[in-house]
Design a protein around this nucleic acid. Sequence first.
DNA 1: AGCCAAATGTCAGGAAGCCGACATTCGGGG
DNA 2: CCCCGAATGTCGGCTTCCTGACATTTGGCT
Lengths: 233, 233
Amino acid sequence: MASQFPLETRYWYLRDHQLFRHLNSAELRQICLITNFKTAKKSEIIYFAHDEQNRVYLLKKGIIKIVELDEDGTETVKDVLQKGDLFGQLTLDDTEMEEYAIALSDYVTCCSFLIEDFEEVIRQHPSLAIKFTKLIGMRFRRLENRYSNLMFKDVRTRLLLFLEDWAEKEGTVENNAIMLKNYLTHQDMAGLVCSTRQTVSQLFNEFKQHGLIDYNRSSIIIPDLKRLKSLVN
Amino acid sequence: MASQFPLETRYWYLRDHQLFRHLNSAELRQICLITNFKTAKKSEIIYFAHDEQNRVYLLKKGIIKIVELDEDGTETVKDVLQKGDLFGQLTLDDTEMEEYAIALSDYVTCCSFLIEDFEEVIRQHPSLAIKFTKLIGMRFRRLENRYSNLMFKDVRTRLLLFLEDWAEKEGTVENNAIMLKNYLTHQDMAGLVCSTRQTVSQLFNEFKQHGLIDYNRSSIIIPDLKRLKSLVN
DNA sequence: AGCCAAATGTCAGGAAGCCGACATTCGGGG
DNA sequence: CCCCGAATGTCGGCTTCCTGACATTTGGCT
C-alpha cells in the first residue's frame, strides 16, 4: 500500500491538510514517517474499525460513508465525510466501535496514525493540539445539532434540513438551479436522518410533486433553495 | 465573587482536577491568575451562556443541570454534570448557545477561563492539551451513545438505561437496595431521555407496580439492579 | 441484448408515544 | 399551620411514522 506513494507525494498530501499546514518542511517530513497512506476506488471498503481500533484517520481526497454495524447485524449509515474530515478512533482512546467506511467517489485517499504516535506529535506541536481539539469540537457540535433535530423536528423537516445542508456543501449551480450529484440511496439517507427507506421514498415523491426537487438515481435538482428552506418549520 | 476565595483555596481547587494534577506548583499558580471562581447554592443559576459565550467552565464541586432554551422559549434539560465535568464553550470556538446551568446540589463551585487564555495554557502545556482533548472525546462518545439510543430504543428502554446509568454513577447501597437521592423532576428526566413529562410519569408508575423501583419526590430506590438491567432489550 | 440484484414506489394496518385536559398531591414560605 | 404553586397521576384522542408486503424500475455485468 504505502509503497504506492513516493515520499514526495505523501509530503504534499500531509501539507495540504489544515492540521499540518503551518508546520515547516522538516517537521512535516518527520511526521510523514509515521503516517500510513491508503487508497480505494468507489464501493471499496477503506477502513474497518474492528481491525484497527487504534488508529486515527484523515480523509485526504474523495467522499466516504461511515456505516455502523448493530449487534444484530443491521447496518446504518452514520455519516458522510469529505476531504479534511477525521474518522476512526478520533477520541484517542479505546472505545469499541463496529463500523466501516466505503468510498463513495471514484478515488479516495486517506492517511492514518497510530494513536500513540499521534499523541506524540500533538505533544511536540501544541499548536496542532489546538487545531485538533477544535476539529473534534466541530464534530461535537455537528452531532449536537443532529441530536437536537432528532429531538424536536419531524422526519419531513429533518429531510429538508439534510437536503439544504447537502446543497450548500456540494451543490453546483446549473441553469439557475442547484444540482447535486447523488451517491446515496434512500436507505442511506434514511440512516442519516433517522428514518426508514419507505418514508424517505414517500417524502421524496411528495417533494417532487410539489416541485421542490427533481431527482433520479444519479442526481437531485433543487430549483429554488429558498423555497425549500422556507418549508423548514 | 473571586475575592471570596483566598489564593490558597483556588490553588487547591485547581490542583484537584485531573486536567491540572500533573502540573507543578509554579505552573499551577500561574494558571490560578487567569482563573475565575464562582459559587452557587441550590436552585441558583451559576452560568448563563448568552452573557459569556467565550468561557470554558470546569465543575469543581456539586451537581448542576444544563438547560437549553429553544427559539420559542421552551426549556429542555440537556445534561446533568458532576464534579470534573466541562461545560460552556468547550469547543473553544464561537458557537452560539442558548443555555444556562442551575445548581442541583446544596453547594456548587466552578471555575472558568476565557477561551483565549485557555488556549494559551494549552499551548504551553502540551500534556494538558491531550488530556483536554480526551475529555472532549469522552463527551463526544457520550453524546454518540445518546444519539444511538434515541435512534434505536423506545422510551421505556431509554428510561431504564438512564436509571441504570444513574444508579451506577451515584447510587448508594442501603440495606441491600440501591438508593438514589433524586434532584430531578419527571420533566427533567423527560428532557434527558427525549420524551414527555406524562410518559415518564406513566413509566415510573409502571416500574413501581412491577416492583422494579420504589420512589417519591426525593428519592428512588432500586431493589434489584440486575433485574432492571435484564429488561433493557 | 438480456438478466438479475439492488433500488425505488406504493399502500394498508398498527403501535408508540405526544398532546391537551384535568385531578390530585406535595412541600416550602409566609 | 396553612396556602399556593409546582410536581405528579391519569386518561382518551390523535398523529406520525414504522412495519411488512408486494410491484416496478433501474443499471451494471456477462
